[in-house]
């Protein structure tokens, strides 16, 4: 049996809308993955603890507020501190080009902008999952 890809979807920060994150979560589930959804207003500590306990392959962070730099970077740092760098991090949301570049430099695997097709995200996560499994 092919191994299941496990992914944690979370929304750090204080903004309260998670429609986008939910749509992505459902699309990934429909693609046969096990999606652990922890909703909005998560601290980076909560996200990283959850990711480690659940032993996920991928963490998907969604952010629409301006605080993405801080939150995303903190998640990367915490993963490193906990020897959990094998967990891949991807992001989604609206952010300036230079922020995206900076985050990719800090180890975020990919940032999906608004309007990205769902099947593109699914394909990417599947590929990521396959790579970390082997």
């Amino acid at each position: 049996m092919e191994r299941k890809i496990r992914i944690l979807i979370a929304k750090p920060g204080l903004d309260g809308h998670d429609r986008g994150a939910k749509v992505v979560a459902r699309a990934l589930r429909d693609a046969g993955m096990e999606v652990i959804y922890i909703g909005i207003r998560n601290t980076p500590e909560q996200i990283v603890n959850s990711a480690i306990e659940e032993d996920v392959d991928v963490v998907g962070l969604s952010s629409l507020s301006g605080a993405h730099m801080h939150h995303f970077s903190r998640v990367m740092d915490l993963l490193r501190e906990n020897d959990a760098e094998d967990i891949s991090v991807i992001g989604g949301g609206i952010m300036p080009e230079e922020d995206q570049k900076e985050l990719l430099k800090r180890g975020v695997k990919k940032i999906f902008g608004p309007g990205t097709r769902l099947d593109e995200i699914v394909r990417y996560v599947r590929e990521l999952g396959r790579r970390t499994k082997s």
């Binding site: 046969g32 652990i36 959804y37 909703g39 998560n42 959850s50 306990e53 659940e54």
Partner: peptide
């Protein structure tokens, strides 16, 4: 689809940072 949406953890947020809890 063989997939699943695991949505119980979200109700346990107050426990996420507890060192002696494993979910």
């Amino acid at each position: 689809t063989g997939g699943s949406l695991l949505g119980d953890r979200i109700r346990m947020k107050r426990l996420f940072e507890e060192r002696s809890v494993f979910i």
